[in-house]
Structures are given as C-alpha cells and as structure tokens.
Computed example of a mutant assay.
Amino acid sequence: MQSSDVVVVGAGIVGAAVARRLALGGFRVTVLDRGASAGGTSSSGEGNILVSDKGPGAELDLAVMSGRHWTALAEELPAELGSGFPDLEFEAKGGLVVATTAAGAKALLAFAATQRSVGVDARPVTAVEAAELEPDLTPHVAGAVFYPGDAQVQPTVATEALLASARRHGARVRQGVTVLGGIVSQGRLVGVETTAGRFSAEHTVVAAGPWSAEVAGRLGVRLPVLPRRGTVLVTARMPRRIRHKVYDADYVGAVESGDAALQTSSVVESTAAGTVLIGSSRERRGFDERIEAAVVGELAGKAMVLFPFLADVPVMRAYGGFRPFVPDHLPVIGPDPRLPGLWHATGHEGAGIGLAPGTAELIGALMTGAEPEIPAGPYAVTRSSLKEETNG
C-alpha cells in the first residue's frame, strides 16, 4: 500500500492548485488521474479569470480572492520553474461587456452597480470610449462596462505549471489511475482502492471536475455535480485586433441559468498565439461529446454581431468540453462530514480556471485549522441549498 497524507483525485487545474498548496504546506501529496493531467475540463476552456460575470455573493468573493493569487502565481511560477518552462500567457487584459439593445444596457448597468457596491472595479463607458478600447467593435453599442480586473491564462500550461511546482515540493502525480472505491476504517475514509493498487491517506480530496459525482459515489456519498457541455471556436491566426476579453451582456444570464437547454452568448478574445477564441455555449446533455453545426453557427453569428470583421476570418477548429455544474451555482469546497476524511474541491462549472487558486487556499486553511481568507461556509457540501440534492 502506498501512503500519503493527502490523495487528490483529479489532475486538472483545481486538483493541481490544491496539490501545490498542500505540498507547500508540508503535506505528503499524491495526485491521481484516470487520464492525462489537464486532460479534461482544464484543456477545453478559454482560460478565463473573471470578476465581470459574477454578482455580489460567495462566488464573487472567491473570484476576487483568486484573482489576487493569480497575480502572485503569474510571478511565482515562472521564477520557480525557470525560462525553459512554457509561458503561462497570463494577461491582465481587462474585460469589456457590451449591450447592443436599450433593455440589455439597462440590465447591464444595474448589474454593474451591484458589483461596485461590494468593491468591484466596474466602469461604465460610453460608445465612444468602448470604440477607443476596441476599434473594431460594432458601432451599435447601447451600453458597456469595462472591468480592469479580468484576466486570462493558458489553462493547460497553467495546470502543468502548478503540478510541476507541486512535484518540486514533494508531490507525486500518477496518471492512468482510476479510483474504484474507498478504504474505510471505523467510519473514516483512510484511502482509496485504484487500478494501481491501494493508496492510504488521512485526507482524500475529490477534484475530478464533471466526473466528481462518479468518484464521490464510488467512495460512498452523493454529490450533485453534473456535466454541462460547452463549445469554443478557434479562428486562424491574425494580427491582434481584439485587445480585451469582450462579451455580450447575455453571457451573465447564461452563466447564472440552470436551464438544461442550449444557451449561447458571445465571448470573444485574442490569444498570445494570434488566434481568436469564440464562445460560449452551455447545455446539459450528459457526456455527449458531439460538436453540432447548429451550436457552431450560433456562436459564429453572435460573435459577428460584436465584431463584424470576423465574417471574413476563417474558423480553424472547434473544440468542446464538460464543465462541472452544481444546481445552486456554487462550487463545493471543504470536508464532507458524512464521511470523515473525504474532501471536495469541485463544481466550479466554467469558472474553474479563475477560481482554482482561491479554492486551494480554502482547502489548505481548512485542512490545517487556519482561518480562511474568506468564510468557507457558503461552499460547504452541507449548505441548505444543496440539502435535497445531497440527501437524494
């Protein structure tokens, strides 16, 4: 039997961040993933680090804290890993949210006002100012808000960097290892049974993204995490013409919706490689991996509303992935009192890249008995808004 203080199930960006935080704190950590590191949700997103799409409440609190840690990580990881490691492509580019109708502008400005009431830098800008920020933006701007705090990172590289740092501090990462069940002694989870044998640990953290419910079920508890499908388009490379993360005001409503049906909204941004990423779709249809022409068409059409010049730019490819959806739209972070020794770090849906460092800080504080930077209660698996789902 292989022994650690902590087993982290999932080598995506949340699991990687948790592993690094715990390894830095002196824990002996083993990370297990049934596939490759960053092989699931973390490799199928846009690398968003956002405050602009979150209203006042626990998710915004976590996003603000995580943003501070991302700024620090953008300096710490390259310094630690050296110039030979790929660039994180961290860019504090800011976000511009645009409404093209009077009704959309009214809702957007009201939403921004609620954010400013809790300290978010949300700056209403005129159509003229929006055009100065984005010269190729549609002229049909009814209202816009600029968020200097929005940023972007290359998600696969960031995941691998966090794992590399964790390894430097003693963590072990095992790929191609599937968790089959739990090892329970006197009512406490003391390890996991896997396809590579037994791994004993005082703590087991489930950070398996949209597959977390499956893993938790094998360990003996119910966890209401469902896959929510998303699709992203990638254009051919071009000189950078889009300077910020730009999205239409409908995006916030799509993020907050629990509807299973297809929803699309326009999110457009350039990458360091010269491509343009176009999203975003949300749809609950299990683990169906098909990319559908109708979704691609909707995404392309809405992107051209914001940036008409994109009509002449070829789409190079489309890719999709599954995001871990929780019915009350909050991640599940912390210990599970139903099975002592079990912890959760999952349910971030499309915000996992941005929220990973804050999630890791919460886990690290709670596991050592320290005071978290923000209250941990809203993310507990025992919260009232999840009671029906967790009890089944």
Rank of each mutant, 00 (worst) to 15 (best):
F146W: 14
A164W: 04
E134A: 13
P155Y: 05
L137G: 07
A130V: 03
V157T: 13
A151P: 00
P148I: 02
V157K: 14
A151N: 01
R167D: 03
V145F: 12
A144T: 07
R172Q: 12
Q152F: 02
P148D: 00
A164V: 00
E134I: 09
L163I: 03
E134K: 11
G170R: 01
V145A: 11
P155S: 09
V128Q: 15
D136Q: 13
F146R: 01
F146E: 10
A130I: 06
A164Q: 07
H140W: 14
V153Y: 11
P155M: 12
G149H: 04
T156G: 08
T159D: 00
L162A: 09
H169I: 04
A151H: 02
A164N: 07
A166S: 07
P135L: 12
L133E: 12
A131E: 08
A164F: 01
P148V: 01
S165C: 14
V157W: 11
P135Q: 03
E132K: 14
T159S: 04
E160P: 00
Y147N: 04
A166H: 02
L162V: 05
H169L: 09
R172N: 08
E129R: 15
R167T: 12
E134P: 01
P139W: 09
E129G: 01
E160A: 00
A171V: 00
E160F: 15
P155A: 12
E129Q: 15
V157H: 00
Y147G: 04
E129Y: 13
V141R: 10
E160K: 14
E160C: 07
V128T: 15
Q152W: 11
A171W: 04
A151F: 09
H169R: 13
G170I: 05
E160M: 14
Q152C: 10
L163N: 03
Q154L: 11
E134T: 12
Y147H: 08
R168F: 13
A131G: 14
A142V: 02
A161S: 10
A166P: 06
R172S: 14
L133W: 11
F146Q: 01
L137C: 04
G143K: 00
D136K: 11
R172W: 04
L162C: 09
A158G: 06
V141A: 08
V157A: 08
A144Q: 08
D150M: 03
E160Q: 12
G149A: 12
L163Q: 01
V128R: 15
H169D: 06
R172D: 11
D150R: 08
V145S: 06
L133N: 06
V128L: 15
P148S: 00
V141G: 05
E129S: 11
A144V: 09
L162N: 07
V128W: 13
T159M: 04
A171E: 02
A144W: 09
R172Y: 02
D150A: 07
A161D: 01
E129C: 05
V141C: 07
P139C: 04
V157G: 09
D150G: 01
T138Q: 07
T156E: 07
T159C: 14
Q152G: 06
A144D: 03
A158P: 15
G170S: 02
L137F: 14
G149C: 11
A164S: 12
V128C: 09
L137M: 10
Y147I: 05
G143L: 07
D136M: 14
R168Q: 13
A151K: 02
S165Q: 03
A130E: 04
G149P: 00
P139F: 10
H140Q: 11
H169C: 03
G149D: 13
L137S: 09
E134S: 10
T138M: 12
